[in-house]
Design a protein around this nucleic acid. Sequence first.
DNA 1: CAAAACCGGTGCAAAAATTGCACCGCTAGC
DNA 2: GCTAGCGGTGCAATTTTTGCACCGGTTTTG
Lengths: 300, 300
Amino acid sequence: MRHLRDFEFIEAVIRAGSIRKAAEDMNITASALNRRINRFEEEFGYEIFERLPRGVRLNPAGELVLHHIRAQRSDFARLQSQVADLSGVRRGHVSIACSQALLPYFLPEQIASYRKDHPGVTFNVNARDRFEAERELSTFSSDIALVFEPHHLVDFEVVMSVDQPIYVLMRADNPLAQQKELRLRDCLAQPHVAPSAQYAVRLLLDAAAKKTNMERLRPIAESESFDFMRHYVLHEHALAFQFPIGLSLSGEHGYIARPLSLRDVPPGSLLLGQLRGRTLPVASARFVMQLSQAMQAYHL
Amino acid sequence: MRHLRDFEFIEAVIRAGSIRKAAEDMNITASALNRRINRFEEEFGYEIFERLPRGVRLNPAGELVLHHIRAQRSDFARLQSQVADLSGVRRGHVSIACSQALLPYFLPEQIASYRKDHPGVTFNVNARDRFEAERELSTFSSDIALVFEPHHLVDFEVVMSVDQPIYVLMRADNPLAQQKELRLRDCLAQPHVAPSAQYAVRLLLDAAAKKTNMERLRPIAESESFDFMRHYVLHEHALAFQFPIGLSLSGEHGYIARPLSLRDVPPGSLLLGQLRGRTLPVASARFVMQLSQAMQAYHL
DNA sequence: CAAAACCGGTGCAAAAATTGCACCGCTAGC
DNA sequence: GCTAGCGGTGCAATTTTTGCACCGGTTTTG
């Protein structure tokens, strides 16, 4: 769009770190770009770039402008989405930052179900940890975040939250599979794999083990990939841990899942959220509503 | 600003109702303006005007665009205000829609006090009833509203609220001035003036009179001007009604004010608010904080 | 019922804004 | 002290925008 063109050039300069490099990226002369930037600053009333000998860098005013640019663009996208919606077109795009756990079962099912009604809507799904997810929201890189136990929560507006007990994964022939509910001490006595430290599952397990004076987790394998861990238990007689929303509980994938007793380990909170105060495009807003309903089904 | 120019032209067309008239207003040729509008619609992807034989009119998509334009402009003003603030300039502009009652004492004092610290900040103060005030907020015509008992409350985000008992105004030689607190029936027995029906004071008085089976108000004069009524009691031996925040309680202006008993008439709520979800410019946000503190002093 | 008054839209040339090119002065790094 | 890379500027070329004249259509007016 015409009226956002200055903003595109400004963003290009920010990315490139210098006007000349940005000019090359944008297929324009450095002098032309230089004048655009200068004219913008003049009209805006304040400089937004520091001039360094090797290039330019945003000053504090520029940081505000950058945020404004991002907000502006997202706002305009929402406007178009609203207009498209009222002309009955029902198209749009939804961008999601989510925990890894939701990638195999939950989100594919939800998205497929949504697209059955709204085939014009496209999706963007990226695995992000809870820090990155919030950052993605505040830079307008994602519309929606779906993560366990997010941290800051300053820019994160919680739309829906469900508690999830931790489940233990094992092969069907594991004797523990006979019990309906497992105790933490029984699990730690067996060989187990565990997610690395930044994941909510691991945090909860570590805290629980520490609290009850049991010995710490001694995973035979640590990984950032729940996919890997889910498959590992099929090969060696080991346990893995995961939230049920990331699992298939039918047993048809070869593994059995049993909940850890809530007496031992508190549940983790799965939070659905968006950037605080932001009005989402129509498609995203509707998908949030669907997710929110789907999450209620997981309510303890 | 450059990137808002299309928006200015669009607004001009909306105001004028036809491209030709708008072109005249904007000192431009109709053909040029026509092409701007057409180009915008083409780039935007949707028509925003209905072409009528006598001009043009916004279609529903256009309504959304209009709202976007207003939000955009306000957002840009806030950005400039934030940047100005961080360069230490402390300038800006605050636009207030408020009840008449706040014009004589409360707001002048508050604004003067604020401008002592921030002389670069300018103000816009307009008396609006509670319907108009909310409309002003949602069209971004005012930043802040300060009204009694606003109605819709859908777009109105309450920042602070204080209850105000109704006070009775009289000349110092009125025998009622001897009492610390007045009963409604005593007041209605005397000649009195009253605000017209749309005002909160009148609503409360009418409701109270009706409820207690007393006879209705029989004002010897009805007016929309509290200024008029305040002065009237100085000339004839009559009573007037007003919230204390609109009064000088020192007696130095010639009238005496006594509260109506809360047993007879419930207090009215003075609400300080802004457009829901909007982030105000720095100057406005700070002034809201000051108003909020000042209002606490009136807490019952 | 016809003329006049407006309306949005378009072709074309004039005017204005933007861009590209050549070049300046400056600083960091070698 | 030399070079490479940077932001900035004067001037001409180029692209974009505008103004003017005019078209076809509809409503108002006499």
